[in-house]
């Protein structure tokens, strides 16, 4: 493999990491509060507001049911508005983020709903406000689940990022298609696949390690 190819692979890997990192971070910033709100606004919950919950749930579901590749194309005008351009790595972050937000919101919602209702009751009995309950009870207690959810989201984003070549998003997937498939260079395809596997493995074990670190629910040897 030529030095040129290696450089291209390296660049494409960095582009993928860049897109995934930024869209993952933005997805979390927006998805986390939405997920928390979805969980606590259900009927009978902390900030019970069934109507708003229902509407928000519908929006989230609608966004999630659009196939990613269609989403990318469909929101091109919006992407141009936000990123100033509709092509390139930075522009690709817009659809990636829009796909990540509802996905992360649902994962966070599930993690929050797993929290034992007895803890919410205990906090209410202490005189906590709903916001205090969210900050001091729900999020810390759901953290292992949230961490695993975010891991899943990042792995999915790595997959999605391979599709944004359609808007000139570049990155590993784009490289694989253009060189490995269109120019028939199977070694490039192979290298891309290997790098993606390694990336996903690393993200997965990093995420699981973090989740274990924040999970204090089961006793185990923590070396002390």
């Amino acid at each position: 493999m030529s030095a040129n190819l290696i450089n291209m692979l390296l660049e494409a890997t960095l582009q993928t990491l860049y897109m995934v990192a930024i869209s993952g971070a933005l997805g979390t910033i927006f998805g986390l509060p939405i997920g928390v709100y979805l969980a606590v606004s259900q009927r009978g919950e902390l900030l019970s507001s069934p109507a708003v919950n229902k509407v928000l749930g519908l929006v989230v579901n609608a966004t999630r049911s659009v196939p990613f590749i269609i989403l990318v194309v469909a929101i091109i005008p919006f992407t141009r508005l936000i990123a100033g351009t509709s092509i390139g790595t930075t522009a690709a972050i817009v659809p990636l983020t829009i796909a990540a937000v509802p996905f992360i919101a649902r994962l966070v919602e599930n993690a929050i709903r797993e929290v034992d209702s007895g803890l919410i009751e205990a906090a209410r009995a202490m005189g906590a406000t709903p916001l205090q309950i969210i900050r001091k009870v729900l999020i810390p207690e759901a953290l292992p689940g949230i961490t695993l959810g975010l891991t899943l989201a990042v792995v999915s984003l790595i997959g999605y990022s391979a599709m944004v070549g359609a808007v000139g998003g570049e990155g590993l997937g784009d490289l694989g298609i253009r060189y490995g498939y269109q120019r028939f260079m199977p070694e490039v395809m192979l290298a891309v696949v290997v790098i993606l596997i390694v990336l996903v493995q690393q993200v997965q074990s990093l995420g699981e390690g973090l989740a274990r670190l924040v999970d204090k629910r089961a006793p185990r040897n923590r070396g002390r």
Binding site: L119, A125, P140
Partner: peptide, 30 residues
Amino acid sequence: RRDVGMIFQHFNLLSSRTVYGNVALPLEIA
């Protein structure tokens, strides 16, 4: 509610906090 403490059959302690952290929680809240 700050004048009324409550204990529960299933304890309802926060698994994410130490003993110290659990006892500190109502004070943080107050």
